[in-house]
Simulated assay, not measured.
Amino acid sequence: MKIIFSPAKDMDFSKKVYSEDLFISEKTKGILKEISLLSKENLKKSLKLSDNLLDDVYDYYENFYEKPFFRAIDLYNGLSFRQLDKNFTEDEEKYIKDYLIILSSLYGMINGLKYISPYRLDMNAKIKVDNLNLKKYWIEEYNNINKNEKIFNLASDEFSSLINRENYEFIDFEFYKIKNNELKTHSTTSKKGRGILLNSLIKNKIENLDELLKIEIENLIYREDLSSKNKIVYILNN
């Protein structure tokens, strides 16, 4: 089993690591080379950055190889990641190492404990490497998970759509809120639900779907009547 998860643009710089070196793939180096050729103004256009973000993102890439570095699961600080209790035990870190894959547009498929340097880049950035946009550039690596692996899909469509579902047993998760007696979903609801569920998977060290469906998760209500073999539905209750 593997759990796939989306990265985040927001970052938390509080858990710095100076003792580890940065190891990145040749594919990541290829993207960094293309970014290094951009002027500050072209970086702004290619990454669709606001004036407020431009200086920070420019500095990320200018100082990319300089310490401190950060563990990916600590650095990402979007809504999904803010649902995690990041005071991980040794057993929980082993679980993360064994099961969690974060899908990044800069680093490719990375484990949550991998050391990374801060960056900002999404799959729709106007950057080409080897004459390929970022989605085409990464699609082969994104399909390097062992065939027939069971995948808990907690990633957004932006990333998970690059994986060929025919090669794997995908379990999708959907999250809703009840408003005016109707089921409503929203990106905020989905992000929050994914984070709550990932936190529960880690804390309970869940290894299969049967184990997951037996536990109660605070703020998530499992709706068996809306679920199927490959789609699990939860109602967000906060």
Rank of each mutant, 00 (worst) to 15 (best):
F69R: 10
I110V: 13
N111E: 02
L84T: 09
S50Q: 08
D157V: 06
N77A: 14
K136Y: 03
F64Y: 15
K135T: 11
G112P: 08
N124S: 12
N180V: 01
K147H: 06
N124I: 05
N146H: 05
E66Q: 13
K135W: 00
M123I: 15
F69W: 06
F64W: 06
N164G: 01
E93F: 10
L54K: 09
R82D: 01
N111Q: 05
K94G: 00
F152Q: 02
A72M: 05
F70T: 10
A155T: 09
K147Y: 10
Y115T: 11
P118W: 05
I139C: 03
N180H: 09
E140D: 14
S161I: 06
L113H: 07
I127Q: 04
I178R: 14
F175V: 10
K67A: 12
D51M: 09
R120L: 05
E93L: 15
R120N: 02
F64Q: 06
E140F: 07
N144I: 03
N153F: 09
L154E: 00
F88S: 05
E174W: 00
Y107N: 06
L154C: 05
F152A: 02
K86L: 06
G112N: 07
L54C: 10
N77P: 02
K135I: 07
E62V: 08
F81Q: 09
G112D: 10
Y107G: 01
E93G: 02
T89V: 09
D85Y: 07
L132K: 14
E149L: 08
L100K: 11
I178L: 12
D130G: 11
S161D: 13
